[in-house]
Simulated scan of single mutants.
Amino acid sequence: MTKALYAGSFDPLTNGHLDIIKRATRLFDEVVVAVATNTTKKGLFTAPEKKKMIEEAVKDLPHVTVLDHSGGLTVGLAKELGASVMIRGIRTVKDYEYEVGIAAMNKTQDEEIETLFMLADPAHSFVSSTLVREVASFQGDVSKLVPAHINEAIKEKFLR
């Protein structure tokens, strides 16, 4: 049985993230989505809020679980979970350059765990959580970029 780990801050989960998750379910027996806390970014949602929203987004996908990952290396979590692959979404050359360094570092920590780069669908290649947050903060329409329930949660955050 092959298990893959897809970790990220997902603040918020976008349709691009969801597309990667859906495609990963066709490649692996089990996909674990880990909601990581990115200490270099100021978050819009708390880890429990993100976890709940992602669980709602993937509820109809077979063999997908969502967990909170705070502290520790992602490669360590992969090993703990018995995941043989870590999935990383790539939108741009800049993403690739960044992710290659992380993948190489992860190899120094555990040679048995592979990193799989999945190219973003062209329809989502311009979308980032950061861009979604920024547009939404100015009351822009992000409804086509995120699942509907997440769009509503974003609106609520910025109405406060």
Rank of each mutant, 00 (worst) to 15 (best):
L27F: 12
A4M: 13
V135H: 08
D121C: 04
R26C: 04
L116S: 01
V132Q: 03
G16W: 01
L73Q: 04
E112I: 02
T65C: 08
E49L: 05
E111C: 14
K3H: 02
A148E: 15
A104R: 11
E97D: 13
H149N: 08
G16K: 00
D19R: 00
K144M: 15
R88Y: 03
P12G: 12
L67W: 04
D141K: 08
D60Q: 12
T40M: 14
V32I: 09
A103S: 13
M86Y: 05
A7I: 00
K59I: 12
P122E: 03
K3V: 12
L27G: 01
R133H: 06
P62E: 15
E111I: 08
V35M: 05
I154A: 04
A47E: 07
R160T: 06
T39D: 15
F126M: 12
G8C: 05
P12S: 10
I54N: 05
G72Q: 07
P48W: 08
K144A: 13
A7E: 00
V146H: 04
D110S: 12
A4Y: 05
A148D: 13
S84P: 06
R23M: 09
V100K: 10
T25I: 08
A24S: 14
E56P: 11
V85W: 09
E56A: 11
K50W: 02
F10E: 06
P48V: 05
V32Y: 00
L5I: 01
A36F: 06
D110A: 09
T92A: 10
G71C: 02
A47D: 12
F158D: 04
I102D: 09
S137E: 09
T115S: 14
T108C: 10
D68V: 15
M86R: 11
K51I: 04
E111P: 02
I20R: 01
G71S: 10
N151M: 10
T37P: 02
K41S: 10
K41H: 12
T65V: 03
L77A: 00
D68H: 13
E112Y: 05
V146Y: 04
H149L: 06
D19V: 03
T74S: 01
P122H: 04
F117P: 03
K22H: 14
F28K: 10
E80L: 11
R23E: 08
T40S: 14
E56C: 06
E56V: 07
N106C: 02
V100G: 01
